[in-house]
Design a protein around this nucleic acid. Sequence first.
DNA 1: AATCATCTGTGCGCTGACGCACAGAGTGCT
DNA 2: AGCACTCTGTGCGTCAGCGCACAGATGATT
Lengths: 295, 295
Amino acid sequence: MENWDEIRTAFQVARLGTVSGAAEVLGVHHATVIRHIDALEKRLGTRLFQRHTRGYTPTEAGRDLLTVAQTTEEQFAQLASRIKGHGETVQGEFILTSVAGLSGLLVPVLAEFQRQHPAVIVRLLTDMRIFRLDYGEAHVAIRAGAAPEEPDNVVQPLIRIRYGLYASKKYIETYGKPESEHDFAGHRFVIAESEGSRAAFFRWLRDKVSNDQLTFRSTEPAAWDAALEEGVGIGFLPAWEASTRSDLVEVLAPRPEWDSPLWIVTHVDLHRTRKVQAFVGLLKEKARSWPQCAG
Amino acid sequence: MENWDEIRTAFQVARLGTVSGAAEVLGVHHATVIRHIDALEKRLGTRLFQRHTRGYTPTEAGRDLLTVAQTTEEQFAQLASRIKGHGETVQGEFILTSVAGLSGLLVPVLAEFQRQHPAVIVRLLTDMRIFRLDYGEAHVAIRAGAAPEEPDNVVQPLIRIRYGLYASKKYIETYGKPESEHDFAGHRFVIAESEGSRAAFFRWLRDKVSNDQLTFRSTEPAAWDAALEEGVGIGFLPAWEASTRSDLVEVLAPRPEWDSPLWIVTHVDLHRTRKVQAFVGLLKEKARSWPQCAG
DNA sequence: AATCATCTGTGCGCTGACGCACAGAGTGCT
DNA sequence: AGCACTCTGTGCGTCAGCGCACAGATGATT
């Protein structure tokens, strides 16, 4: 049963009873309709219609085709309206991937997004590996650092996260508080593992201090947090996060060169969809009111 | 949702995940597959797939299409097997139309036909008007008289029905029995209504006797029978039928020029079907053993 | 690390399918 | 009875859609 268009043609002929009527509905010439019917009957080895000068009347096989194709047309019409309406109403899954440590900013946005579109199922994925937008693993990704340049990805800037150097009160009590980067001698630092440390402020830190001052290293941002809290060293934190933590002391204030840009990345195939647009629009709007974030 | 072939193409792509695989299954070039997908997405205004260098992964809309088209393909496959198997197994309705008065011959054949093919529902239609094969009103028609010459009808001779002149014993007792057509004076005859009397023996009779001797006329063959039985006149009967009636007397023996040829008529669109062939074959076979029928 | 295999994507030439126009036939209307 | 309308059917010219070939890219394999 190859060539579904011929079935569709036969369906219209069976429905309307004339070749001409079917041709008009299908928007083709009636000669085309005749050719389709002939080809289909030849392939099936059975007559679907009895031909007379006033029209075509379906045989039993033709009536069988009529009922089957009737449901097919309905199902296709429903499918089309679903897909087209798909852009209208936001529904289904929405998958957002992000670098770790942004939950505090993103979750309120996702909550508002779900409030506006109750039919949406939200999934927030954060993982070490980069999720691949081009395999449909996510609708939107939040990436940090240098602007991604993968093909088929549309990248737009979100905000720049301001980073400062912080330490816990416990650390200050033990080691004192350096006044500037020239005062780092004898201090201990918390830093990312070397592989994943492509952030600008980490490179800056490695320049300023010796290797054996980097006493606590982890791939896990949550571990940096906990390490700072325990007072094992001085480390970088987003300014907005540090401002919510009363036990932390600002060692060095945020500097522009430490800023980490965040990027909204979407796949080009999904970028124009209503669902993605709705989220990206909401995210940008909310981002304007985010505190402690230099533009 | 015009162009079902593009849906079928998209279905295979969604199922297999690659354009190349779909092209191979569909038996077309992979460039064609890409064109179909592009056209369909453009018409729907939504992406069905995310493209990457190793294949296509369906979006939500594409997965929706996959499930819908999956059932469509199954339904079409079942339809095709039904239609193709339609010629293999004899089933469904079988409609036979015939001139009136042949039930005695045809019913045993139909009974045997149904015995051989229990799934068949048999309908035997006899009416004054000629059923139109080209409107699907019947599969096979039995026609009498001159060979039908309608286009699209395949006509084959069945048998020649031998007709003789008969009267009831009651009639003979009252009016006597003519020895030949020269002895018809004063006799009364049963005949068809003039419009429908295209049979050869009726024309012969009208030549031999005056109009007022045709005292009983009817369009209904069963009425001729009854009229003969009642003794109201002399009339033509098929020889095979008269031989089963002990109350009838043969007035004039059957003559070749009175023979009424019977024709098997089928529509060209239905003639090749297994169902029609099965019946026609059986009918011809049975007809060979019919009594009183000159070849 | 280098080669291979596979898949997508695009320009070009061509063929098959389409529209067009006309003929034929039947039906209904006046 | 004749006319007009509708529908099927077919030959012809044209064009859209197809196959082809090549390029680019990515992942697998050795």
